[in-house]
Amino acid sequence: MNEVITTILNHRSVRHFKDEPLSDEQIKTIVACAQAASTSSFIQAYSIIGIKDMEKKRKLAEIAGNQEYVAHSGHLLVFCADLSRHELIGDLEQKDVIPSIESTEKFMVALIDAALAAQNAAIAAESMGLGICYIGGIRNKLDEVKELLKTPARVIPLFGMTIGYPEKINDKKQRLPLEHIYHEEEYEQDKEVYLRQLQEYDKEISSYYEERTAGKRKDRWTEQMAAMLEKQTRMYMKEFVQKNKMNMR
């Protein structure tokens, strides 16, 4: 097993950071690695906003659900789906690109491009001895995030990423069994097989929490997911996306 694979398999979210900012060189290296990710048809439909200003970090921490570590990380990146530059390209080249960039397909491309870039950034940071945590909570109040970050139409802030020197690292959470995720030739549709796999996984996750919390918590994964999905959250998203001239057709 090589160092890259070891780094990937050792991933865990870090929420406690030392009070030590990243250097500009580290930031540039991480962003360069993000840019090295695959991009559909070379479209590069994303942007990354780095946040150093403490007041902005505190505001984003508040928006994300009062998650203090968002403000107290070594650096904060916000990954955005971005088709604004492609509208400018249409003007520059005198081509009607609007129907295309307002399509669901190009919206999906922008989301995928941003996610691929972010995961490259995460692996790069972790390979440097840093810890990371994705912050989906910025989508709690995207109107406020857009105002704070001054993002134009056709740009959607998707998630943040805190990066820094770990002060505390939690135990690794076991993922779903490979057999539950990986299908060969066709999708496995035997529900009995799925249910058995989920029940076994529930036991592992329950044991993980029980050990980690000295018996104070032992909830199952399916229990967590059902409770989370029962609550309707961020239901304004479709309206927000369309208002920002993304995914209109």
Rank of each mutant, 00 (worst) to 15 (best):
L60F: 03
M248E: 11
L60A: 01
I181C: 09
Q232I: 15
L77S: 02
A114I: 03
E68F: 06
I49H: 00
L149M: 04
A153G: 06
T7C: 15
E185K: 15
T162N: 02
T29A: 08
K238H: 08
L76W: 09
I101E: 03
K218C: 09
Q119G: 06
S103Y: 09
Q94Y: 10
Y69R: 04
R217M: 11
A125D: 04
E144F: 04
Y208F: 15
Y165C: 09
A121M: 09
C33S: 15
K59P: 01
T162E: 00
D171N: 10
M161V: 06
D219L: 12
I163S: 01
G136S: 10
L176A: 10
G129W: 13
R154L: 03
T6R: 10
I181F: 11
Q26M: 12
S41L: 09
K18E: 15
P152R: 08
M225K: 11
I101G: 04
V193I: 15
F79M: 02
Q26I: 06
I5H: 06
A227F: 07
R12W: 05
R249M: 10
L198C: 13
N10K: 15
I156H: 00
Y236E: 14
L77H: 02
M225W: 10
A45G: 05
K52M: 03
R154W: 05
K56I: 07
E186R: 14
P152H: 10
T29K: 09
P21K: 08
K28M: 07
E200I: 08
E210R: 12
E87L: 13
P99S: 10
S40C: 07
T151N: 00
D171Q: 13
K216H: 10
M235W: 04
E211R: 15
L195F: 05
N140F: 06
E93Y: 13
K203G: 06
K141F: 04
V155T: 02
W221K: 08
L9H: 12
I27N: 12
G136W: 08
A226G: 02
I27G: 02
I181P: 10
N66K: 07
S41P: 04
D91G: 06
L178V: 15
A124G: 04
T29I: 09
T29Q: 09
C80W: 01
S103C: 08
V4N: 08
K231Q: 13
Y165N: 14
D190T: 09
D19Y: 03
H16I: 04
I51N: 05
L116E: 12
M108F: 13
N2D: 15
A227Y: 05
M1H: 12
I163L: 07
A227I: 05
S47G: 09
G50F: 01
D171R: 07
I135F: 12
N244A: 03
E144V: 03
Y134W: 14
F240I: 07
Y182P: 09
Q67T: 11
A114R: 04
I163Q: 00
